[in-house]
């Protein structure tokens, strides 16, 4: 396994505002890595520095063993190995899906087959439809097709499923996993915690320009060892108790009720609860 992205001491300010205040990251080959954080946390700035769209003030950044801020022709062969899916775009409305995808294939050294990619993102039936006639979800899948046509080793996905219906999101997650299974490394930014939980091998939470924690979704913020809340009906009242040993509590309740516990519910902190706590939002 090799490190695809390594960042240390990354800083970037806009005027007097520090957007990124010392970020360290290491992303390994073949992982789906999610970067979470509220708006203005430094998420977009960090990703845009990694994508080579922005220069940093200080810090060491290596993406596929290359400094993304390098100017000129050297950047071209690096861009050949990455795929970028930006936040919502509305371009190429007057080209068909196939025209756009097959044209973008021309930019790359070793592209995938346009028809294969269109099939992979599930747009085969829309192959000859103009971009402007696509629905929001189809449009997003075209964005992905354009991002992966070059057969990238590393894919940046920025808010990929905003505006999707639940079914389309499931289909999209399936596609992302398929790309990872083919060997690509994926850096995902998202507002949806369930998306990060479903897809990511590891998540990083960024707030006020700093990484607060990097962990697997089920370990983040001490989630695995956090207290579980057990609740049940006792006569007129709903009672609840926080417990480090919920199984034992349930067993004793079961004995007490002689079997079935009325309206039993055992709940661990969701990724969203943990996340909101980490970024300091009072969600009680």
């Amino acid at each position: 396994m090799s490190t695809v992205i390594s960042v240390s001491g990354l800083r970037k300010s806009y005027g007097s505002t520090q957007a990124v205040a010392g970020v360290d990251l290491a992303i390994e080959q073949g992982e789906i890595f999610a970067l979470l954080g509220p708006n203005g946390a430094g998420k977009t700035t960090t990703v845009e520095i990694l994508e080579g769209f922005r220069d940093c003030d200080s810090g060491d950044v290596r993406v596929l063993d290359f400094d993304p801020s390098t100017k000129g022709h050297a950047g071209q062969s690096w861009r050949d190995r990455i795929g970028i899916v930006l936040q919502s775009t509305h371009d190429a409305g007057d080209l068909t899906v196939f025209e756009s995808v097959s044209h973008f294939a021309m930019y790359y050294e070793n592209p995938k087959d346009a028809r294969d990619v269109i099939e992979l993102v599930g747009l085969t039936e829309k192959s000859d439809a103009l971009g402007r006639t696509l629905s929001g979800g189809q449009r997003r899948r075209l964005d992905v097709a354009l991002g992966i046509i070059g057969n990238p080793e590393l894919i940046f996905l920025d808010e990929p499923t905003t505006g999707f219906d639940p079914e389309a999101r499931r289909a999209f997650w399936h596609l992302i996993r398929k790309l990872r299974d083919e060997g690509a490394t994926i850096l995902l930014t998202t507002h949806y915690l369930d998306e990060a939980e479903a897809l990511a091998d590891r998540v990083a939470v960024i707030n006020r320009g700093k990484i607060i924690e990097i962990a697997t979704p089920d370990q983040l913020g001490g989630r695995a060892t956090s207290l579980a809340t057990v609740s049940w009906r006792d006569g007129q009242d709903i009672r609840s108790e926080k417990s480090a040993n919920p199984t034992a509590l349930v067993a004793s309740l079961s004995a007490q009720f002689g079997g079935e516990i009325p309206e039993l519910n055992v709940k661990r902190a969701s990724l969203e609860d943990i996340y909101l706590e980490m970024i300091g939002v009072d969600h009680a």
Binding site: E51, R79, I82, I84, L86, Q87, T89, D91, Y107, E109
Partner: peptide, 17 residues
Amino acid sequence: VERDFGTLKRLRGTPMP
């Protein structure tokens, strides 16, 4: 218009000269 629509940024992210 292309700048607003993200066409240019998308192209910048590819190896297109």
